[in-house]
Each structure stands twice: as C-alpha cells, then as structure tokens.
Amino acid sequence: MEVYALVGPSGTGKSHRAMVVAYEHGIDTVIDDGLLIKDGLKLAGQSAKREATAMQAVKRAIFLDKEHAQQVRQRLLEENPERVLVLGTSARMVEKITDALEIPRPSKIIKIEDIATEREMKLAKELRENHGMHVIPVPTIEVKRDFPGYLVDPLKYFFSKKNEPRRKIGEKSIIRPKFSLMGKLIITEHVVAQITTYVVLQTQGVTQVNKVNVEMREEGVTVRLEITARYGGFLPDIARNAQKYVQNNLENLTGLIVYGVHIVIKSLDV
C-alpha cells in the first residue's frame, strides 16, 4: 500500500481539493476527518464533523478512539487499496493517523499551498470561520444518513485537462457542524502548562516542575520542561517516561497534537 498525504492548515480547502488530487494520482481511497472513503462512498468510520466540540472533532480525526480506529483498520485490510490519500493539518498529524491505522507513513506529501492560490485558501478560511461551512468528500445522500437534521448542500465536482472536455468525477457535501455553530474553542498556553505540570508530577521519579514553556502551533503544541528528579533513579528512564506520559495525556485531554516534549533535568532531590 502506497500512502499519499495532503496537508495544510485547517480551513484552507483540503477536503474540497482531495478528489482532484486523488484523481490525478490514481487514488480511489481517501482518509479524511475520521472517514474511510472509496470512489466517493463511505466505507467505514465516523465523521469528526458530527462531534459537539472542536476538541472532540480533532480526537475523532486522528483516531484516538480505539474502537473507531479498529473499525477503519479492519476495512482497510479487507479492501487492501493500492494507494491511499490521507488528509491532515500537518505531516505530523498524518503520521499519527497512519500509525493509529497501522498503515505505512506517506511516501509523498502534497502541500495545499502548492495546489491552491492564496486567494482560494483565503476564501476557504472565510467560509469556514464566518459561515461554519465544512466540506466532506462524499455525496449528499450518504452524508444525510450520518447527519440527520443537519444542513447539507451538494457540491458536484468536475475535472478537466487541456484540450479535453470537463468530466464529472464525483460529488461532495457542505455541512455546518455543531461545533461551528456553537463558536470557537481556544486552549491557551497557560492551560497547557497547567495540565503538563499536573501530569508530569504523576510520573515516578519526578519531584518538582521548575519551569514549563509552551509553543502553540497549527492544531498542535510543543512543550519544554525543567524538572527536579529524585536522587537514585536512572535519569534517562525518568525523562523518557515523563515524555511519554505528558504526550499521551495532553493529546487525550486537549485533542491537540503534541509535536514534542523536551525535558531538562535541572537538579536532584536528595
């Protein structure tokens, strides 16, 4: 199985362009926002757009739910597609998706800015931020089964090459999910620092957190900690365990992708 990735910031039109990218590269299977899609039809999964909050939507999109991941993983094994296109806000997010589904990491990464103009991406962001409009690359009749009561609009999609007539290659759907209608969720650096401090103090061998620096990025975060460790412990193991514990808990509690957890042991508690 060969995996391609389409990456770009949230709301820049990845789902809108996924069908064309797949068509151009001979790909019939797409993983987008928690769904496994083949030839425009949903095979497995649950759309992140159904979630009530943005935090829950991110967790759904990166398959943190084990039952959800297993369902999609099993269907992928059955279908065994030659090529798969995975959508994500970054290469790191795509890697988290491929690891959760136990498929190869991408051999080719396509950036949204390489296939869309600045104006097109700006328009897509305005539609997302001001009108709560999200695109799902499956036909409206399929979407309505999963989104009863939602406002759903069809979006037919065509592809054309030079000196060739336009050809319909599928249909997409525009929806306005609950978390868009409710407003925005913002998790501040201060909250991430508080969670990190609480979590790392639960790690065996860590007695004090001296300093936490948080760097927020698109859909994710990097944290740097200075800690005091208990004397007599094997310091590399203490640091590795703390890294893993912080990453897992931050991702589960906030839905953010943790790009890095950097730990500096500044002193020993004797």
Rank of each mutant, 00 (worst) to 15 (best):
Y4A: 05
G8N: 05
P9A: 10
S10T: 10
H16L: 15
H16C: 14
H16Y: 13
Y23N: 02
I27F: 07
D28A: 00
L36W: 00
G40H: 02
L41C: 03
L43F: 00
L43W: 00
K49F: 11
A52Y: 12
E67V: 14
Q71K: 15
V72W: 05
R92Q: 14
I97L: 10
A100H: 05
L101H: 06
R105P: 01
E113G: 09
T117P: 05
E118H: 12
M121V: 12
A124E: 11
L127C: 08
R128I: 12
I136L: 14
I136G: 06
P137A: 14
I141K: 13
K144F: 00
P148M: 08
P148C: 10
D153R: 13
Y157D: 08
K162E: 14
N163F: 09
K172G: 09
S173C: 06
L181Q: 06
L181E: 06
E189T: 03
I195E: 03
I195C: 07
T196I: 02
N210S: 01
V212P: 05
E215K: 15
M216C: 03
R217I: 13
V221G: 10
T222I: 13
V223T: 01
L225K: 01
T228W: 08
T228H: 05
G233M: 15
F234I: 15
F234P: 09
L235Q: 07
Y245W: 13
L250V: 00
L250N: 00
L250M: 01
L253R: 10
L253M: 15
G255D: 00
L256P: 02
V258A: 06
V264P: 00
K266I: 02
D269R: 07
D269N: 10
